[in-house]
Design a binder for these strands. Structure first.
Length: 866
RNA sequence: GCGGCAGUGGCGGAAUCGGUAGACGCGCCAGCUUGAGGGGCUGGUGGUAGAAAUACUGUGGGAGUUCGAGUCUCCCCUGCCGCACCA
């Protein structure tokens, strides 16, 4: 047995040990080693897309954090489900394959292999027997099966709607995948095109997707993002008559029906179907021109030009249902600030109380009527400004004098009674565009009949396997590549008729909508997951991942889960009980005086001053995202090769709270390495051949006293701080506490007892599992026993307090002196001792003490007057 | 523009309830170790003044509450994230 610390050797041997002994295997109900008395804990990382670049140092931040929790839970006696897999279908995987000239199935396989290798190197305690890949037929068979459930529920439909099209990617994209008119992946421009596509009716779940956020323990920021994305508005639909068309009316949605008396004009979206009938012959040319321009504008232009409103009069008039005579006759405009996709695509414009309408009215010199009087001290229409807040109704007939809330209610009732409107709730959420004209995705399990009807593929015939294609690139015209797979395309129906397969594929998000359920029973070939497994695991207790999925994956998965809940396949209404977002890992970069960023390999960092290697110019340090061009991307493989995995894990946690974004600093890593080495020296004498220091091998050493007693106190405080760090995932404080303990123990090494050493190792084990396991065995634990299943050390409250308390003596809140006294002194004794303190006396001289404040266990403050 | 989060040494960051600001680590400085260049150990290290004791000052800025504020309240500044004509 070598007695020098060799990270590579130790880590390799224990990783092999864990693998051979299946230390992290989780048993399911029905397994021979299943223990029904253990509570369950399901802790899941957002599984990665296996990119060609491999993991960088940012991925493991969350993985290590969740691994620490999983390891602790295991030691606390939970049956812990902690699986990992790969989100392998989708656009990036396909693009990578095209770039490398390979098959996506092959690149995905290679990349997953690399990811798995890297994750093993990090000592992550996954149960690899449960690994899944969304692009494997044994998995997507069930993705297709779940799709047929959605289809049967009427939640999947085909429609020709204006959808986002990305010319660069040659595909359609979902609303959630387009940010400010550009693709979320690759940042390419996108445009609206009317195309026939498969849609999922996520809007049917809008209300529950909002309501059930109350059931989960998620960051408030993510809940807010989802609520805003779903965008619930309560108001009323109001029906306006038309002057020239008697068989039609103009329906609008408004959140402010109380301002109906102030509606002085109407605006409809340029695409509104009624425009054609409304427009008068005089206005026809101008309207057509505006419509053409609006259609040609990209979404980006349309929103960019938000500052100035534009529009055109249709020549037509609507009738305000609550006004009389000429006042009721209000002009109808078309303008692109009204969107066809929201509400009814038409609005009643109340310029006095809506900023946008106010702007439009000013632009085109339209009438403004004040119908809401603002509260005292706030400017309103009479002061020449628009007031959109709540106030008191005026100039509104029967509503006059009512508060905004009362007026809303009254007018809605009145309109309902007359059949001119009703209360209505509108959502911004659109149905989910679910089809892609791409190769690398789940084929839809649907068959088209000659008569145009569609039937889902029989469950028995699933999966519909993705055909192998040598050329799988997207078609230039946007049609599906699968349409070119001639041998695959057609199947014989039972009646001999030829059926055509659906050639669209599902988007990359499909597989991740239910993978957490598959992990519960990953090798089941008869079902997506067994009832028994699902009943046991229920839902994910802790879900760890990046915040970037707030309105994508997390919304989609909740939707699917609710559908499965409704058909009785799952027992919880929500999939993820607690969500935790780890922060982003950034890096240092360096800027010269012109503000240009200098790649780190051109920077000298001597004496803590950054200078340019060539010019010698002084540079300033800034924090940026890791990027290839700045050469500040850190590869975990390198860090582990140089320092070992335990150091790597400790550093990742030591950097700061898990939720926070923080920069990776290569210069800080050795600090954690030194801690590991100090720890090693505390346990192992390099000059001896013993497995561990002699006094640690000897268990029974009598009473706790002297150094041992002091270490016992320090150890319990350390254990307490480690415990506390799990609450907010600020493991940096846990590592700091462990460092502090080791420093202390090294000052009196003979004082450390075996039982103390063991408890410390157990608390360390989730953080630095390899060295903990090694030292555990060096202390004499049998070869087949792992520290991974040792008991998590309890905090003994008795030893939390210090024997001596350092009392701080203040005068008027300023620290003037300190006093060491035993903890058990009474208030009177403390005060007496404090008054007798020489240093303090100097500050009290010639002054009268007005008040004496004693904070138990902390300080004494004398309030004085001169 | 609206909403959310944050601002603490040269750097990453500590600081249950309002109670010693700067734990722990990096860096830096000094000394020791001479297997004398990147190792280890010991000590120091917010700023200003001082040989020192010590004093003053200090958590983005300003006001307030309090015996006492990094922490609570109000206003402002800066940064990051989300939303952005959603009627």
């Amino acid at each position: 047995m070598s007695n020098t610390y060799n990270a590579a050797e130790i880590e390799k041997s224990w990783q092999e040990f864990w693998s051979e002994n299946q230390t992290y295997r989780t048993s399911n109900p029905g397994d021979s080693d299943f223990d029904p008395n253990k509570p369950k804990y399901y802790i899941l990382d957002m599984f990665p897309y296996p990119s060609g670049a491999g993991l960088h140092v940012g991925h493991p931040l969350g993985y290590i954090g969740s691994d620490i929790v999983a390891r602790r839970k295991r030691m606390e006696g939970y049956n812990v489900l902690h699986p990992m897999g790969f989100d392998a279908f989708g656009l990036p995987a396909e693009q990578y394959a095209i770039q490398t000239g390979k098959q996506p199935a092959d690149t995905t396989h290679e990349n997953s292999e690399n990811f798995r290798r890297q994750m093993r190197l990090m000592g992550l305690s996954y149960d690899w027997s449960r690994e899944i890949s969304t692009s494997h037929p044994s998995y997507y068979k069930w993705t297709q099966w779940i799709f047929t459930k959605l289809y049967e529920q009427g939640l999947a439909y085909q429609a020709e709607v204006p959808v986002w099209w990305c010319e660069e990617l040659k595909t359609v994209l979902a609303n959630e995948e387009v940010i400010n008119g550009r693709s979320e992946r690759g940042d390419h421009p996108c445009e609206r095109r009317p195309l026939k596509q498969w849609m999922l009716k996520i809007t049917a779940y809008a209300e529950r997707l909002i309501q059930d956020l109350d059931l989960v323990d998620w960051p408030e920021s993510v809940k807010t993002m989802q609520r805003e994305w779903i965008g619930k508005s309560e108001g009323a639909e109001v029906v306006f008559g038309l002057e020239t068309i008697s068989d039609e009316s103009l329906k609008v949605f408004t959140t402010r029906p109380d301002t109906l008396f102030g509606a002085t004009f109407m605006v409809v979206a340029p695409e509104h179907p009624l425009v054609e009938r409304l427009v008068t012959s005089e206005q026809k040319a101008e309207v057509a021109e505006y419509q053409r321009k609006a259609a040609a504008k990209s979404e980006l232009e349309r929103t960019d030009l938000a500052k100035t409103k534009s529009g055109v009069f249709t020549g037509a008039y609507a009738i305000n249902p609550v006004l009389e005579g000429e006042a009721a006759r209000i002009p109808i405009y078309i303008a692109d600030y009204v969107l066809m996709g929201y509400g009814t695509g038409a609005i009643m414009a109340v310029p006095g109380h809506d900023e946008r309408d106010f702007e439009f009215a000013n632009q085109y010199d339209l009438k403004v009527i004040e119908v809401v009087k603002p509260p005292e001290g706030i400017k309103g229409v009479s002061q020449g400004t628009c007031f959109s807040g709540d106030g008191t109704a005026i100039n509104s007939g029967v509503l006059d004098g009512l508060s905004t809330a009362q007026a809303k209610e009254k007018i809605t009732t009145l309109l309902s009674d007359k059949g001119l409107g009703h209360a209505k709730t509108t959502y911004r959420l659109r149905d989910w565009l679910f089809s892609r004209q791409r190769y690398w995705g789940e084929p839809f399990p649907l068959l088209h009949h000659e008569d145009g009807s569609i039937t889902p593929v029989d469950a028995a015939d699933l999966p519909v396997t993705l055909p192998e294609m040598t050329d799988f690139t997207p078609s230039p015209d946007g049609s599906a590549p699968l349409a070119r797979a001639k041998d695959w395309l057609h199947v014989q129906g039972p009646d001999g008729a030829t059926l055509r397969r659906e050639t669209d594929t599902m988007p990359g998000w499909a597989g991740s909508c239910w993978y957490y359920l598959r992990f519960m029973d990953p090798n089941n070939s008869d079902a997506a997951f067994s009832k028994e497994a699902e009943t046991y695991w229920q839902q994910v207790d802790l879900y760890v991942g990046g915040v970037e999925h707030a309105t994508l994956h997390l919304l989609y998965a909740r939707f699917w889960h609710k559908v499965l809940f409704d058909v009785g396949l799952v027992s919880e209404p929500e999939p993820f009980k607690k969500l935790f977002n780890q922060g982003l890992l950034t890096a240092f970069a360096y800027k010269d005086s012109t503000g240009r960023l200098i790649p780190v390999d051109q920077v000298n960092l001597d004496n803590d001053k950054a200078t340019h290697k060539d010019s010698g110019e002084g540079l300033t340090q800034v924090v940026t995202k890791m990027s290839k061009s700045l050469r500040n991307v850190v590869n975990p493989d390198d860090v582990i090769a140089e320092n070992g995995c335990d150091t790597f894990r400790l550093y990742e946690m030591f950097m700061g709270p898990l939720a926070e974004s923080k920069p990776w600093n290569p210069r800080d890593v050795p600090g954690c390495r030194r801690f590991i080495e100090r720890l090693w020296r505390l346990f192992v004498d390099q000059d001896s051949s013993d497995s561990a220091r002699k006094h640690l091998l000897d268990n029974d050493r009598g009473e706790l006293e002297g150094a041992s007693l002091e270490l016992e106190r320090h150890l319990n405080r350390t254990l307490k701080r480690i415990d506390d760090s799990f609450k907010f995932f600020n493991f940096n404080t846990a590592v700091a506490a462990m460092m502090s303990f080791v420093n202390e123990a090294l000052k009196a090494p003979e004082g450390l007892r075996k039982d103390q050493a063991e408890r410390f190792l157990c608390a360390l084990a989730p953080f630095a599992p390899h060295i903990a396991e090694e030292l555990w065995h060096r202390l004499g634990h049998p070869a087949n026993e792992s520290i991974c299943h040792a008991r998590w050390p309890a905090v003994n409250e008795e030893y939390l307090s210090e024997s001596q308390i350092n009392w701080v003596l203040q005068v008027n809140g300023k620290v003037r002196s300190q006093l060491q006294l035993p903890a058990e002194k009474t208030k009177e004794e403390i005060l007496k001792a404090a008054r007798g303190d020489e240093k303090l006396a100097k500050h009290l001289e010639g002054k009268s003490v007005v008040k004496e404040i004693v904070v138990p266990g902390r300080l004494v403050n004398f309030v004085v007057k001169t």
